[in-house]
Design a protein around this nucleic acid. Structure first.
Lengths: 190, 190
DNA sequence: GCAAAATCTTAATCTTGATTAAGAAATGAG
DNA sequence: CTCATTTCTTAATCAAGATTAAGATTTTGC
């Protein structure tokens, strides 16, 4: 299961076989069953997770009690609460497996040690963050420029298989509409 | 004007005087007058900007023709279109000075050269991106959990001086409400 | 100092999508 | 296989904030 990670890293930096070997010792492999939690509100977030296979969701509970999904994490994505990590503050988020999911866990302290051993990985993590940040800048665009209906259509276009993988109400939660409204949108198209 | 940048960097990594000297040769200082542009829609974004003093805004034009502000950049913040940089694609954004602003420009190619000379700066940039990404994760929370009115109040609390610095319609544009509605909110409080 | 441009306010009407409620369909555990 | 839980749909009513329009105020360039 390290093959997936190493392949991903090699898009940004080249690792020798030795370095690949070292790398693996800092990660912890975890196999999550559906609905299992990696992080809950109130806990300090102490690790980043690389999704090898499966699907995670990161969400928070709104004041009115309903939940809202901030991000999904699918194959080859990193997921974590970076505000909690940076500020060493309790997280407002939950990270949960949507389906059976395999992740590689890298704790903050292990990441520090790993980066001391293989400094060029700093570059990898910088690029990963840069890419994720770019995606969020675009997300703000979509949120403000498109109606719920347009956003749903765009999402379906960009991640065709994904729509079947998660329950509809989670998609609604991600897009920021109610499940009822999403249902109406879908009803209209048939 | 490099003092501000070096002080910011030193929060994350320690530079020797030599390294500080090297650093300065890769940046270009620019003094922007109000309304001057650093990036326009359709251009490839080829640099990152560190705000020494002043205020930038990054916005895009919606389909209906109105503009929406994605981010402000004030003292000590980095600002750029990271999607455009990553994908080498034309930007959808404008970056413009809201007031007289001093920036340090670091082009992508100069960044590469700089990081070859001083590799430990990779760590600095990673942390900067991580912090910015964390801020955006929280921003999604606020967008979905709070009414326009609550968001305005929070913003005023967190950046008290800032509200006087930018025109109200820009704040409205950042919060995702119309200037008319923001005016109503403010009217209510007096 | 004055005209033009930029910004802010008020108020009426209209839209999108939320809320509520209830039932239908699908999935899952034992 | 079957009952319980989870998920999805439909429809009525409601609310937040948009839109439109107009006038007031402030700022800026010359």
């Amino acid at each position: 299961m390290f093959a997936t990670l190493i392949k991903h890293i090699s898009k940004y930096v080249t690792l020798t076989p030795d370095e690949q070997e070292i790398l693996t010792t800092y990660f912890k492999y975890e196999e999550l069953s559906k609905k299992q939690y990696l992080l809950s509100e109130g806990e300090k977030c102490t690790a980043q997770y690389f999704v090898v296979q499966g699907c995670l969701r990161m969400y928070f509970i709104k004041e009115n009690g309903s939940e809202h999904i901030v991000q999904f994490g699918i194959d080859n994505w990193w997921l974590s609460d970076y505000m909690s990590i940076e500020m060493q503050s309790p997280s407002k988020f939950y990270i949960q497996a949507v389906e059976r999911t395999q992740v590689l866990k890298l704790s903050i302290t292990d990441q520090q040690r790993l980066l001391e051993r293989i400094p060029k990985l700093e570059h990898y993590f910088m690029r990963v963050m840069q890419k994720a940040f770019g995606a969020f800048q675009m997300r703000i665009c979509y949120l403000f420029d498109m109606s719920g209906e347009e956003q749903y259509n765009l999402f379906v276009d960009r991640f065709p298989g994904f729509v079947q993988r998660v329950p509809q109400y989670m998609l609604a939660s991600y897009l920021g509409v109610t499940p009822e409204f999403l249902s109406k949108i879908r009803g209209k198209k048939r």
